[in-house]
């Protein structure tokens, strides 16, 4: 079964670009997109429409924007790390901000990596390829995580 990546971003263009980049990078994982923090938490906890895991499988990786309405990326990070189930879920922050404060806080809350959104789709494609090969390829995950 293919791996699943959950992309959390409120910017529709960035979401679409990510989909395009994944397509152009010929990524083997399934990409799921939600547009704010609240939806991300709902997705992870399987509440509401996300209860259907065949349609919305638990992600193996989360790409998380920080500045979002309702619940921010930080809220999602904090929540996920408080859940036994998502303690080891690789969470990669992918945001426009490169502010020192944001970077520090993200790591403090348990982010595994911090990436700045590039201008230039080719760079984004490269980034997707690297994420796939490293985080979904080389990186060793806990086996129990996706077997729900």
């Amino acid at each position: 079964m293919n791996a699943t990546v959950l992309h959390v971003d409120d910017d529709a263009s960035d979401s679409l670009l990510m989909k395009q980049a994944c397509r152009k990078a010929v990524a083997s994982f399934g990409l799921q997109s939600v547009s704010d923090g609240e939806m991300a938490i709902d997705y992870l906890s399987g509440s509401g429409v996300y209860a259907d895991r065949s349609k919305y499988p638990l992600p193996d990786l989360m790409l998380l924007d920080l500045k979002m309405p309702r619940k921010t990326g930080f809220d999602v990070l904090e929540w996920a790390r408080s859940q036994e189930k998502f303690k080891s879920l690789p969470i990669l922050v992918l945001t426009a901000s490169n502010q020192e404060g944001d970077i520090r806080r993200a790591y403090e809350l348990g982010a595994n990596s911090y990436l700045v959104k590039p201008v230039g789709i080719h760079t984004l494609i490269e980034m997707v390829k690297m994420i796939e090969s490293y985080w979904l390829g080389m990186n060793q995950r806990l086996a129990s995580l996706t077997t729900e």
Binding site: S13, K117, V119, G120, I121
Partner: peptide
């Protein structure tokens, strides 16, 4: 920068 990413992409 967000619109720029969209424009370029």
């Amino acid at each position: 920068r967000a619109p720029l990413r969209a424009m370029e992409g």
